[in-house]
Amino acid sequence: MNMHKDNMTNQNDINLIDDDMISDPVMEAQIAQSITDFLNNRVQHLKPEQEQRLSAARNAAVDYLAEQQAQYSTANRIAGHGNVLHWFGQHVGNNIEQHRFASTALLLVVMLVTFFAVQQFGFNNNLENSDAFLLASDLPPEAYADKGFDAWIESN
């Protein structure tokens, strides 16, 4: 192992890589690291259309999750109101009819509430982070808003 290190520093040549050296775990990790460095650099240069596809796919998955969670919370709320529906249903009378009615209504409600919840959520999510982070940042908000400060920095 020491001998290999000497070789490396003296000759600096990839042709010296032989089976022995690669079977050394440290060496293996080093070669792997160099390769992944190149790969990481590579993924920073994707084609614009590929980037777009990826972010569209990401958004679709995220929207789906948001919708699911909205539906889940709505379903919980509906369960709490089950008694009202039940009471309603009894007044309508027919048990089967009641069931059909309740499930249709439930479906409609879930759809509606999901729609609004998703809209609402999507809006909030767009903000990424609220003004709270601006207020807590290193500079006071006045510093960001003061155009005189901008001009002064530029002239300095």
């Binding site: 003004d131 601006l134 207020l135 290193d138 908000p141 901008d150």
Partner: peptide, 22 residues
């Protein structure tokens, strides 16, 4: 917070963009 709420919408929007840059 108080100062922030008293800024004009112009100033606030300006501040948001500058903060992003910062």
């Amino acid at each position: 917070l108080t100062n922030w709420s008293r800024m004009t919408p112009y100033e606030r929007e300006n501040a948001r963009k500058r903060h992003q840059q910062f």
